[in-house]
């Protein structure tokens, strides 16, 4: 179930944001995308998830060329993503939100126009809420949840899709310091399962070191360095460009 990007280029109008990026992500692997604001990290996730069209290059998943597939088609074959900003259903409960994700795996649903939501879907949704430590929030609407719980709900919905690829866009962004360790523990557990290929956009280097086997540094839409976290951080070009010559606290 490899995800491959070959010579990907993405433009916004006349401006090229991603230049000729090629990457391969395999099941069980976790890769971090780092770089300063505007480097093109989120745009690259958009290109993979189908939220931005490619100007050139190809995206293949499990041997299929998905370059021209829509967002929902890519999600259905196993490319799941979370978003940098909170992107939930404000007035639906956490349980209903995760059940929607479970339902997404059940085909067109057109044979269920007048039937109830099956109990097993709801039970399954409960297991994802439990996995993300949200059981006690099941009947709360997303708008009434704390920022940290909203982030966990994003993750619960993503896991409920049972994707092969997890595209995580700053999963700890905006979380209170006290909430970050819980999220990190969750992400480590997900990584340890070996069931997913993870591509993580993250600014916090401690998170990157803990979660990722490989780091890709983006600079103005191009890959500046790629390799193990330690090797990349030791790379003089990376230090010169982003870290001011030392291992700082921002990528």
């Amino acid at each position: 179930m490899d995800l491959k990007l070959a010579h990907v280029r993405v433009d916004y109008g006349e401006t090229t944001i991603i230049h000729d990026v090629s990457l391969t992500l395999r099941r069980g692997m976790s890769m971090a995308l780092v770089g300063p604001n505007g480097a093109g990290k989120t745009t690259l996730l958009h290109a993979i998830s189908g939220h931005r069209p490619l100007r050139a290059g190809r995206v293949t998943f499990a041997g299929q060329d998905v370059t021209r597939w829509s967002v929902d088609q890519r999600a259905r074959i196993g490319i799941g993503r979370s978003f940098q900003g909170i992107h939930l259903f404000p007035h639906l409960t956490a349980l209903a939100s995760v059940t929607l994700a479970v339902a997404a795996r059940q085909g067109t649903l057109l044979g269920r126009l007048f039937s109830r939501v099956p109990r097993q879907w709801v039970e399954e949704a409960h297991t994802y809420l439990a996995q993300t430590a949200l059981s006690h929030q099941a009947n709360k609407t997303a708008s009434a949840m704390s920022h940290g719980d909203k982030r966990k709900l994003e993750l619960a919905m993503l896991l409920a899709l049972r994707p092969a690829v997890l595209l995580l866009d700053e999963p700890t962004a905006g979380m209170a310091l006290a909430e970050v360790p819980t999220m990190l523990a969750l992400l480590e557990e997900i990584k340890a399962s070996g069931a997913y290929a993870i591509l993580l956009v993250e600014h916090k280097l401690d998170v990157v070191f803990r979660l990722c086997d490989e780091v890709v540094v983006l600079q103005q839409g191009s890959i500046l360095a790629q390799g193990s976290a330690r090797d990349v951080m030791a790379d003089e070009r990376v230090q010169a460009a982003y870290l001011g010559g030392t291992h700082g606290d921002s990528a």
């Binding site: 929902d72 259903f89 059940q106 067109t108």
Partner: peptide
């Protein structure tokens, strides 16, 4: 109250998120 009805309510709330879940909006 059906699964389809639930998806419709999701569309009302956040169409983009429903799409990202893999539902054909």
């Amino acid at each position: 109250r059906s699964p389809v009805g639930q998806v419709l309510q999701g569309i009302r709330e956040n169409e983009g998120r429903v799409l990202a879940l893999g539902h054909s909006v």
